[in-house]
């Protein structure tokens, strides 16, 4: 029998005290962090400047300092006491809310139909809807304007809302989500005596809540920040939405940036509320959507 070689052993105390040497940071990781850091700065700075400017006096607006020399809430008092801003806020709330509800209903109804029913021309209809995503808004505003004019909807809520009541993106998003609803659920409900509309509402819709939440956020934000179409279709100041109204703050000689930034800061509140309500669904929704910035 061969004796075991006399290997020097570290004491258990020594072993316990040994700390693994910290590996030098991987270069790739450092670059990733730096990119994320600068990306974060790029995202946050405009918001920081928006709030900063809203707290500045007019003479200080063009100073690049982030902290105002003489902070004031005078701009907030002015904007909130200004009757026009109140109406723009109300208009934006009404328009964004109605278009959001409309999109949730119609996009999901069309998405469900395209996903779960086989009918002649189904693919053509889907491609036609999808192809509208490729047409920029700037090109669509002319036919929209002509339609609004012929229907007598210029300078009205309907005029502002109708192009966004149903979207190709929402239809596509909902169709993709409905793909994940097993057909067995729908067939079981059919056997249990529900009609197709009841199946959509009672069975399919509760199963795609994450998609509905994501769509709600996208549509609400899109309509809340919409500028070009509301600017074209509205004439009277009382029908303006917040972005259109804010752009007109000031006079011909000078733009009142401090008031615009104040209005913009106030207008972020509803979007934050919507986001907080739906945020628990948003992650899955965005992952599933896979597009739309």
């Amino acid at each position: 029998m061969v004796a075991a070689p006399d290997i020097p052993r570290a004491s258990s105390d020594a072993l316990l005290n040994v700390q693994p040497a910290r590996k030098p940071r991987n270069m790739g990781q450092i670059i990733r962090w730096l990119l994320l850091f600068f990306g974060g700065i790029l995202m946050v700075m405009p918001i920081a400047y928006m709030i900063s400017t809203s707290l500045k006096w007019p003479h200080e607006v063009y100073n690049v300092n982030l902290i105002p020399d003489e902070p004031t809430i005078e701009n907030y008092t002015f904007v909130l006491e200004d009757g026009r801003f109140y109406w723009w806020f109300v208009n934006s709330i009404i328009i964004a809310t109605i278009t959001t509800i409309s999109n949730l209903l119609f996009d999901s109804l069309v998405g469900y139909t395209l996903c779960k029913f086989r009918f002649p021309g189904r693919t053509i209809v889907f491609i036609a809807i999808l192809s509208t995503l490729m047409i920029p808004t700037e090109m669509l505003v002319i036919p929209w304007y002509l339609m609004s004019q012929s229907f007598g909807w210029l300078d009205s809520y309907w005029g502002i809302m109708f192009p966004g009541m149903m979207t190709a993106f929402g239809t596509f998003l909902m169709k993709q989500f409905f793909e994940s609803v097993p057909d067995d659920f729908i067939e079981a409900a059919r056997i249990d005596g529900l009609n197709e509309l009841q199946i959509w509402w009672t069975v399919a819709m509760p199963l795609v809540k994450p998609a509905l939440a994501a769509l709600a956020i996208f549509v609400f934000l899109g309509n809340w920040t919409a500028f070009l179409w509301p600017l074209i279709v509205t004439n009277s100041v009382d029908m303006y939405t917040i972005p259109v109204g804010l752009s007109g703050f000031g006079d011909e000689a000078d733009v009142a940036w401090e008031l615009i930034m104040t209005g913009a800061a106030i207008s972020t509140i509803p979007t934050l509320v919507v986001f907080l309500i739906f945020q628990r669904f948003i992650i899955r929704g965005v992952v599933m959507a896979g597009l739309k910035g």
Binding site: P182, D184, F185, E187, A188, R190, I191, D192, G193, L194, V203, P206, L207
Partner: peptide
Amino acid sequence: EPKERDIAMVFQNYAIY
């Protein structure tokens, strides 16, 4: 229609909501 046939079906994947 399925609902008028007086049948009930149990699916492989249960199909419980």
